[in-house]
Nucleic acid binder design. Structure first.
Lengths: 185, 185
DNA sequence: ACAATATAGCTTCCATGGAAAACACCGGGC
DNA sequence: GCCCGGTGTTTTCCATGGAAGCTATATTGT
């Protein structure tokens, strides 16, 4: 509207143009939003993972450590809770904990009351690591978001919040199991 | 601003609230945008994959068929081109083509001039399938986007386009290799 | 012409995560 | 008290894709 500067068409625009030629019967406009959203999400994930890697963490491990850290002292949670918070299956959580335990960042012990249950706890090293990693992570997110003005960021957040509310089944039966993960840190 | 209706805090808002308690030294505002963007992308991917599944296709296979279809008649491309278009490694393309070939949707033959090269072509069955699947896919995208008003969708597209332009390395050295894929169809 | 290098595709190995079965234990009904 | 269904965790098997190395062919430099 107010920015006559015509940027060269991006990847998504080029794909849309080809589809319009090959399938003129279809209105591919939604790709403009959905395609770019995916692309942005992919690029962001890539950048975020680069920071995790500095601490020798994969996205999954970072998520588990963050979920434990959010629990507050003494930084403990059951595997099932971790699965719910990180939106992956409990099987995936088992493996993530295996890796973190091997790295000395968490411990696993039997639950006191319910002998089926387990308690995963951050070790001092794990606590120290996730605090450093999360600080760096948030700094990174600020940088990535710096490409937008505060007003744009606020607008984007409002739009996404609204869409999300209408997209997400109200009852929390949301699938967290697609290729991309939850990963809010 | 103009919508006093206060929705209950969503998943991301709740996580932010906890972080503010545990790490009051950090400004976790960026999570509001980045976290929700990831969540929306995940949900969308999930819905999109559900449609692919109706045609017995995974996301990767759908992407390859779509890339071939976009090539226009006679619907042929070299594996390397397919890798570039779908933003995955050539190794991944080899496997996708293996699966598609097994399903009778594409054929693989030696290139005429360069004997290192190969030509992947849509079979009539593949052409027919991707045309049906893509039609359904676009219908699905329209539905998913129907949760936004046309004005909201336009705003969102503009914001994402701008962010993407500033996020994507100008020279096209973009990473397509993070957990989530490109998948513009 | 021939060696050195680059390129296209493929193969091997590895990492991650889902689905479902297997376990171990809890709790209720009888 | 004991069987039985339910629940928390782990295990097994499988699918997908990346990284790096391999093979065959093309290209370049001398």
């Amino acid at each position: 509207m107010e920015q006559p500067a015509q940027r060269p068409p991006d990847h998504v625009a080029r794909i849309q143009a080809v589809w319009r030629r090959e399938r003129p019967d279809l209105d591919v406009a939604p790709q403009g939003v959905i395609g770019r959203l995916h692309r942005v999400a992919t690029l962001l994930t890539h950048e975020l993972c680069a920071v995790y890697a500095r601490y020798d963490l994969g996205e999954g491990e970072f998520d588990v450590l963050a979920a434990l850290r959010r629990a507050g002292a003494p930084y403990e949670r059951a595997p099932g809770e971790l699965a719910a918070h990180t939106m992956v299956t409990t099987g995936a959580v088992t493996k993530r904990i295996d890796r973190l335990e091997r790295a000395g960042l968490v411990t696993r012990r039997a639950a006191a009351e319910d002998r089926r249950g387990r308690v995963v706890a951050l070790t001092p090293a794990g606590r120290e690591l996730i605090d450093r990693a999360f600080t760096d992570h948030i700094r990174n997110e600020h940088e990535l978001l710096a490409a937008l003005t505060p007003a744009e960021a606020a607008q984007l957040e409002a739009l996404l919040t609204g869409w999300l509310a209408r997209l997400e089944p109200a009852d929390g039966t949301a699938p967290g199991a697609a290729p991309g993960a939850a990963s809010t840190g």
